[in-house]
């Protein structure tokens, strides 16, 4: 008798859990299937599944929002930022983890500032600086802000990782005649690969998603990123909602795919980062 009761309870608990989770992600599913409705069905009934899927919505959305150059601009920023942040994080973290040098405390304090200051407090200051330099709306303007946004977390994650790498490996390398740069690039980098991938993916997500700095520093249609392109969607003429939904799906799909492939690294990195920040 008891085991029957247990089974029923277990089934109920699982149904409840699935229900909660399903409700939580339903807005995303809803977004997905509404993006292929024709506009009449969308206006009439937003809950039912599409009866006549309009895959052409996607092509129209790309054309209307000029999403191809925006994708290129986004990727340009993302790739450069990811490379810079990964390299910088490992190198700075290595010296912070292994050496005592003059000014070390100042160096770590400088990067700690980045984790303590609320990011958007810098929106106006950064705009003013780049305006004075005449650098707003240029191809490279977002690289430095994105780099600075992510590098403190990268350094922190790599520092604790490198501390756990056994010193004997480096000592053996020195005996074999390795110099400093060889230790860094031939030993520390390969050994830090798991952490580098975490840092790289977190940086990728953040710079792909970033909106506020992009709209303030580089809203020009030539250099604008995907998030800014999406913004101009909703401010344009009579908005066609289904196309807008298709555009939102397209911006999010790469992120969702990356998330499902690398969810372990992402979850670990974000948790560790949260604990610190």
């Amino acid at each position: 008798m008891r085991s029957v009761k247990e089974t029923v309870l277990t089934i109920l608990a699982n149904i409840l859990a699935l229900l909660i989770t399903f409700t939580c992600i339903f807005p995303l599913i809803w977004l997905l299937y509404n993006s292929v409705k024709d506009k009449y069905q969308f206006m009439k009934d937003t809950i039912s599944l599409p009866t006549n899927p309009q895959w052409g919505n996607y092509a129209k959305a790309i054309k209307l929002g000029n999403l191809i150059p925006a994708t290129f601009n986004t990727l340009f920023n993302v790739v450069i930022t990811v490379v810079l942040v990964s390299v910088a994080s490992v190198i700075v973290a290595y010296f912070l983890a292994r050496y005592n040098f003059k000014g070390k405390k100042v160096v770590s304090a400088i990067f700690l500032i980045g984790m303590l200051i609320p990011l958007y407090a810098l929106l106006v200051p950064m705009f003013l600086q780049y305006k004075m330099l005449g650098m707003t709306n240029t191809r490279f303007v977002l690289i430095l802000p994105y780099f600075a946004m992510q590098v403190p977390l990268g350094i922190f994650l790599c520092e604790s990782f490198i501390q756990d790498i056994p010193r004997e490996i480096e000592e053996a390398a020195v005996i074999d005649g390795c110099g400093l740069s060889q230790i860094i690039f031939k030993i520390i980098f390969p050994l830090s690969k798991p952490m580098i991938s975490t840092v790289a993916i977190l940086t990728l997500l953040a710079s792909w998603n970033e909106f506020a700095f992009a709209t303030v520093l580089s809203s020009d249609s030539k250099f604008r990123t995907l998030s800014v392109a999406i913004q101009s969607y909703s401010s344009g003429r009579e908005m066609e909602y289904t196309l807008f939904l298709a555009a939102l799906v397209m911006v999010s799909i790469p992120i969702i795919l990356i998330y499902f492939i690398f969810s372990k690294q992402i979850i670990n990195g974000m948790t560790a980062g949260a604990v610190k920040g």
Binding site: T21, L31, L205, N209, F211, S263
Partner: peptide
Amino acid sequence: HRRAIFLPSVLSSFVVALIWQIV
């Protein structure tokens, strides 16, 4: 469950806000 409930956190908060504008 863990993965599903964490999913919205990796999306852009700007995009999420636009989704909710329609919701």
